[in-house]
Design a protein around this nucleic acid. Structure first.
Length: 331
DNA sequence: AGGCCAATACTG
DNA sequence: CAGTAT
DNA sequence: GCCT
């Protein structure tokens, strides 16, 4: 080892003193790399945002269950606290300092710890399974809260926004206790409002999601390089999906890694060149895999915009160059 | 053990 | 107008 | 559920 080898030469103490800085930085370098390797090898790292989202979800689900509103609030508060936390959540968990944070007590501490260590939370899984997904979506409808949703579900057995819309049109809500003409109209308008903006996501939301996804893909080391493409790469304020481009010799490995991303809710399509999924956050994500040679051209192509591409290709053509997502050659 | 945000719109 | 849901 |  390092120390022994030097000692064998029987140096004077001054030698070490003079080189203390070098030695220390070398040791630090070693330590850092070992840590880095361990991290890369280890499990997928849970982000603060995801933990916060889950706590927030629990709050919503509890409201739908008709639980004590203050209990839901406790989860909302904890979610906010976690999201705004500066410190690394994993370190906090490992040193068992989570409970020292205001707003996090016995119960939530245990749940977060379980989530960070195992990547799962039994309580949340069970809770989520006990309530139809559509009910949670209904919360996005302005003017509709957990109490009314609960009534709608229990009395009319409605579980999706679509069903709810029909029920409104058929005037089936006004009979319910606590509902009236105005409420029904408001709900119907609310549904239109939600529809209008569904499938559109704000840049910051989409971008943080995309970064996590990219970070995960890079960790799996199945691709030579990955890059966020599409309108997200162009920093559009509003995007409809996440586009990721990867270069690899074996695309199937990358696709496999992609669909196994913990943030994936549903796989829409899986092929050799393109795979589409829906993330738990509700954002669609596409992954395209090309060869290393094609990558620059593909990146240009998939960054777009479509208008930009057609204009550029038109120009290229005038210059006697053929250009597409695979490459560029003189005609 | 007992409190936890305040203002507003709607129903009955 | 009081109670309730948002 | 959390805090005092």
């Amino acid at each position: 080892m390092f120390h022994i080898e030097i000692r064998q030469k029987n140096r004077p103490l001054v030698f070490y003193k003079e080189r203390l800085y070098l030695i220390l930085s070398f040791l630090f370098f070693l330590w850092y790399n070992v840590l880095k390797i361990l991290c890369a090898k280890g499990k997928y790292k849970m982000h603060k945002k995801e933990i916060a989202n889950i706590l927030n979800d629990i709050g919503l689900l509890l409201e739908l269950k008709g639980e004590n509103p203050f209990k839901s609030r406790a989860y909302y508060n904890a979610a906010r606290t976690i999201e705004l936390l500066d410190e690394d959540i994993e370190i906090l968990v490992k040193e068992d300092r989570l409970k020292d944070i205001k707003g996090i007590g016995e119960a939530i501490n245990k749940k977060i710890t379980e989530l960070v260590l195992t990547g799962k939370m039994k309580y949340y899984e069970d809770l989520k399974a006990s309530i139809p997904e559509g009910l949670v979506e209904m919360l996005k409808i302005p003017g509709l809260g957990p109490k009314k949703i609960k009534t709608i579900y229990e009395k009319l057995n409605i579980t999706t926004i679509r069903e709810l819309e029909y029920a409104c049109i058929e005037n089936r809500l006004i009979d319910l206790a606590g509902f009236g003409e105005k409420t029904q109209k408001k709900i119907l308008e609310g549904i239109q409002f939600v529809k209008q903006f569904s499938g559109q996501h704000l840049y910051p939301e989409a971008y943080t999601e995309a970064l996590k996804l990219k970070e995960y893909l890079d960790m799996t080391k199945t691709a030579l390089v990955t890059k966020i493409a599409g309108s997200l790469r162009r920093k559009k304020e509003i995007v409809k999906d996440i586009d990721i481009l990867a270069a690899a010799s074996d695309s199937s490995k990358v696709m496999e890694a992609f669909v196994n991303y913990p943030g994936v809710k549903e796989v829409i399509a899986k092929g050799d060149t393109k795979t589409s999924v829906i993330l738990k956050s509700g954002i669609n994500a596409d992954l395209r895999v090309v060869t290393e040679k094609e990558f620059p051209y593909a990146l240009h192509h998939f960054t777009g915009s479509k208008e930009h591409n057609t204009a550029m290709r038109h120009r290229a053509k005038q210059m006697g160059i053929k250009m597409n997502e695979y490459g560029r050659q003189k005609m």
